Amino acid sequence: MASLRFLASLFALIAVVALVADATPALNGTGPFEAHSVINYWTELAPASLVATRANIVSMTFPWVWNPMILSVLTAPMSVLFGGLALVCGYLGRRRLQMKVHVN
């Protein structure tokens, strides 16, 4: 449970940083708001690992797993994707209420 709460806070931090990075040009007046996707950042930072990951997924599974399924997730805006992951991990890692049952 604690690990899911930690992941939720880490994903929320990544989502906020990505949202601020996308909104900064619009707030400065230097350009429009443009939400970057995960695949855009991945292409800019490490294009060789993106190609290798695609080749491994296509070789280990069916080709349709990469193109419609994984690629549709990677083309989502980074702040939305990591915000959703933060919500899911936060929900799954929440503290549950303990019910007190008294049996006589």
Rank of each mutant, 00 (worst) to 15 (best):
L10K: 01
P68L: 12
V16P: 02
A86R: 05
A55T: 13
I14Y: 11
V101Q: 14
P25F: 03
V73N: 00
F11G: 01
Q98G: 03
A52S: 02
I14S: 09
L74E: 03
V17K: 02
L71M: 09
H102Q: 13
L19C: 02
M60T: 12
R5S: 13
L10W: 15
E34I: 01
L85I: 11
L7D: 10
N28A: 13
S9R: 08
T75N: 14
P77V: 06
L50I: 01
L97N: 10
Y41W: 02
V80T: 07
V101K: 10
M99V: 07
L74T: 07
L10I: 08
L27T: 04
M78Q: 13
W42G: 00
P47I: 00
M78F: 12
P32T: 09
A46W: 12
L81F: 15
S59Y: 10
S3M: 01
W64L: 13
P63V: 06
Y91L: 14
L87S: 09
V73M: 09
V101D: 15
H102P: 06
V51E: 15
R95K: 12
I14K: 07
K100G: 00
G29S: 10
W64T: 07
L71E: 14
V51L: 09
L97E: 15
V73W: 11
G29F: 08
A26K: 13
T75G: 09
W66V: 07
L97M: 10
N56I: 11
T24Q: 12
V80L: 14
E34A: 08
V88K: 01
V80G: 04
N40E: 15
L13C: 04
L50S: 12
S49M: 05
K100S: 12
S9G: 12
A21D: 01
H36G: 00
V65Y: 02
V38I: 15
G29L: 11
V38D: 04
M78I: 09
V20A: 13
V51Y: 03
A35K: 11
M69Y: 08
V65G: 01
L19W: 02
L74N: 06
G29N: 10
A26P: 10
T75M: 13
N104A: 07
N28T: 10
